[in-house]
Design a protein around this nucleic acid. Sequence first.
DNA 1: CGTGCGCTTGATAATGGTCAAGACGCGTGG
DNA 2: CCACGCGTCTTGACCATTATCAAGCGCACG
Lengths: 251, 251
Amino acid sequence: MTIHIAQSGDAALKPCTHDYQVNCGNCRLNSICLPLALESDDIQQLDDIIQRSKPLQKSQHLYREGDDFQSVFAVRSGTLKAYKTTDDGREQVTGFYFPGEILGMDGISNNSHASSAKALETAAICEIPFTSLEKLSALMPNLQRHFFQLMSREITEDQQLITLLSKNSADERVAALMLSISGRNARRKLSATQFRLPMSRVDIGNYLGLTVETVSRVFSRMQKMDILQVDNKEIKILDADGLRAMANLSG
Amino acid sequence: MTIHIAQSGDAALKPCTHDYQVNCGNCRLNSICLPLALESDDIQQLDDIIQRSKPLQKSQHLYREGDDFQSVFAVRSGTLKAYKTTDDGREQVTGFYFPGEILGMDGISNNSHASSAKALETAAICEIPFTSLEKLSALMPNLQRHFFQLMSREITEDQQLITLLSKNSADERVAALMLSISGRNARRKLSATQFRLPMSRVDIGNYLGLTVETVSRVFSRMQKMDILQVDNKEIKILDADGLRAMANLSG
DNA sequence: CGTGCGCTTGATAATGGTCAAGACGCGTGG
DNA sequence: CCACGCGTCTTGACCATTATCAAGCGCACG
C-alpha cells in the first residue's frame, strides 16, 4: 500500500509502473483468488484478460449502482465496501471485500451493477472483463466450475448475513463480524487476533443493521468483558472463545 | 395438481405416466425458466439432461442442509421454501420458490447443500444434474450466460432481503413480501391481486425476521386500513398503491 | 487554534418480542 | 354427523432491546 511513498512525486505525473511484475502467476493471493484450481498454462491465459489499472484512492468508487456491467473485480490490496442506497437516503452495506476476494457479480443478472463499490482505503484492483471470462470459462472447465463456486459462495454468505440480521442480537452480530474478519485475515496469513478495522463504525452499523451508537456500545461492552481490546480501529482479540460464545453462530 | 384424481387408484401402484408429455419445449414456464434465451435445438439438449420424478408431497424435503450437492432444481408446480436451521433450533427461511424458479444453487460452492428445501404443497420438480449442466454450458454460451444470470439474480434478491431485514419495519417487510408474491404471480399470468398464500404465518415470520404474532398483527392492520383483504391464507389486494406506499421499498 | 468528523456515553422512547389466552379450522374417530 | 383435539391464527398486556435525541470528547486538518 505504501510502495510509492519514495517516488510519489512523479507517480502523479504518469501511470505507475510497479504493477508490471504483478500477474496471477506470481500473485501471493493466487491460492485464494480466481486462479485457484488452475494449471499454470491456464493461469497465463486468465492473466492475459485481466486488466490492472492504477490504485483506487480512499473513498473513490470502483463502480456505482446502475453503471453498465462490464467486469468483475478482484481485490489485490486494500478493502472495499459494496452498498446500496435506499431511496430515503440510508445506506445498506452488503459486503466488505478484502484482498483475494471477488466483487461485482451482482451486476451479471441485469447487465447493470446492483450496488456501488467504494474503496475504504487505497486499493489495488484486478479487473476481469466478463465477456472474456465467459469465453475462457467455456474452454476451461475448472475455471467455469470455480466461478460458479465463487458465485455460490456469495449466495451462501448473503444467506449467513440474512440469518444474522434476522435472528441475532446486536452483540452477536458484532461478534460475528469480528470473527469473520479475523478468519479472513488468517486465510491471508495475517494475524487472526490483532488487526486494524478498515471501515468506520457507521459502515459496521450499516452492514449489521444497527446504529452507530449501538455498535459503539457493543464494543465498549466487549472491552469491559475483556473479550476485545478496542482502540478506535485497532482491535485485539483477547478471548477468542469468549468472542465465539458471544457470536453464538448458527451454521 | 389434481390431474390424477380420476385414476388415483392405480397411480399408487406404478409410477405416474402423465409426465411423459412434459418437456422444456412445451412447458408453459419455458419463457421464465432455464430454457429462456435458448434456441429450440438447444432446448432439446437441455431437456435431455433434465430428470422429472414423481411429485413431492406437502412437507417432504427436496434436499436437506448438508446433503451432497448433485443437482439444481426447477419448480414446475407448487411452492417450496428453502431454510436453514440455527443450532438453537430456530429456522431462517431464505426463500420461497414458485413455478419457473430455480433453487439449490447455494450447494455449488461446497458440493453440499447449504440449506434445506421443503415442499409447502404438492410440487412437481425438474431435476437438473449439475455436472451435465456444466458440460452443456461450456458448449452453449447462451445457457452459460443465462445460468450466470440466474445465480446473479439470486445474489441480488438475497441483497434485497438483507436490506429489508436491516432497514425496514414490520409493516414494510410484510407489504414487500405481498408485492413480491403478487409480481411473481403476474409473471406467470396469474392474478396479481388475488391469491392464496402457500406458506404459514410462521414461515412468513421466519423469512422476514418477525414473530408470528407480529405478522398476524400487520395483516390485521392492513385489513383495517383497507389495503388488503385477508381471509386466513386467501389474500386480496384492495389498494395496490397503498400497499406500495406501505412497503416503502428501496430499490 | 479553531472546526469538523468520528466515536462514545447517557436519557428517553418506540418497535417488536414474549407470555398468555382464546378463536378458528380441520381431520380423526366415535 | 358430531365431538374432540391439535395446530394455526389472532388479540391483548407487558417487557426488553435497540433506536432516537442530545451532549461531550479527541484527533486530524486547515
